[in-house]
């Protein structure tokens, strides 16, 4: 059995974000790059599924991690290898850059199909663009069932289907059965991602990391050419709702001032 995990490298959300001079993207000269938080949960879930198979006396599934992007994403892939993935595929090359979820999903689907994964795991949404679209696009192109916001995963004993719990609004969950192969988009909170051990980090240097240029895919479907959208501009959100801001005073003074406002608002 083989499990594919797709990860995205995103700016650390605690980074100070500046808009680039072009006005179309953020200035990436001074950012920390990390693996998107839900994608780390997807990788952790893949590792837990593999370990569960081993503890049942079965063969350990192979865990292959995929990421699309410029050369810096190899750092994210190395980290995934240090956490326990067996090998990594970097979807690299000029032709793959500048895509949106449709184009990137198309490239990832092609790379996943080449490797024949029984189960594909991704995060539910990225911490940067947060469209929650790429995993659904992958499932559609591969022609396999899909579940979003997955909170629990259980493989059946014959590894032909998977039972998942997914979130709905308002504190409800839905229980589903999906035939394999399937794509599951993992929600934050399903598990607590582990930290890389020193041994894992040392081992990761010897694990295989391949580059894949998706040259078999129609060039019009991937990268900027395959994108269905383009970003015209990015900007700071409109300033607050005209609210009262209390700052630069002591905690006691801020508390006094707030309570006076709340009393006037009859909110106490």
């Amino acid at each position: 059995m083989r499990i594919g995990v797709c990860i995205k490298q995103v700016p650390d959300t605690d980074s100070h974000l500046r808009i680039a001079d072009s006005g179309r993207e953020i200035d990436d000269s001074d950012l920390n790059w990390v693996i998107s938080s839900c994608d780390l949960c997807a990788l952790e879930e893949g590792l837990l599924l593999a370990e569960a198979q081993v503890s049942r006396g079965e063969e350990r599934p192979e865990l292959v991690v995929f990421s699309l992007g410029p050369p810096r994403v190899e750092e994210a892939l190395r980290k995934a290898l240090a956490l326990g993935a067996d090998r990594a595929v970097h979807l690299a090359g000029e032709a793959l850059q500048g895509g949106d979820a449709l184009a990137d999903g198309c490239a990832l689907a092609a790379a996943l199909a080449k490797v024949h994964c029984d189960l594909v795991l991704t995060g539910a949404q990225s911490d940067d663009l947060g469209q929650a679209a790429t995993p659904a696009v992958i499932a559609e192109i591969l022609g396999v069932p899909y579940a979003w916001l997955v909170m629990a995963v259980e493989l059946d004993s014959r590894k032909q289907s998977v039972r998942v719990v997914r979130e709905l609004e308002g504190g409800m969950n839905e229980v589903l059965r999906l035939d394999l192969p399937a794509v599951l988009a993992i929600q934050a909170g399903i598990n607590k991602p582990r930290f890389a051990s020193l041994r894992g980090t040392l081992q990761s240097r010897r694990k295989p990391l391949h580059r894949e240029d998706c040259s078999g895919v129609d060039a019009g479907l991937v990268g900027a050419a395959g994108a269905g959208t383009e970003t015209e501009s990015v900007s700071l959100p409109p300033a607050g709702a005209g609210g009262v801001v209390i700052e630069g005073v002591s905690a006691e003074a801020a508390a006094e001032e707030l309570l006076a406002h709340l009393e006037r608002e009859a909110a106490l």
Binding site: P11, T13, L17, I19, I26, D127, D128, L129, G130, A227, G228, T229, E230, T231, E232, S233, V234, S235, L236, P237
Partner: peptide, 13 residues
């Protein structure tokens, strides 16, 4: 985008 820290204007092609 970026967890509501920024907004993006997106144009369909």
């Amino acid at each position: 985008i970026l967890q509501a820290r920024l907004r993006a204007e997106v144009r369909p092609k």
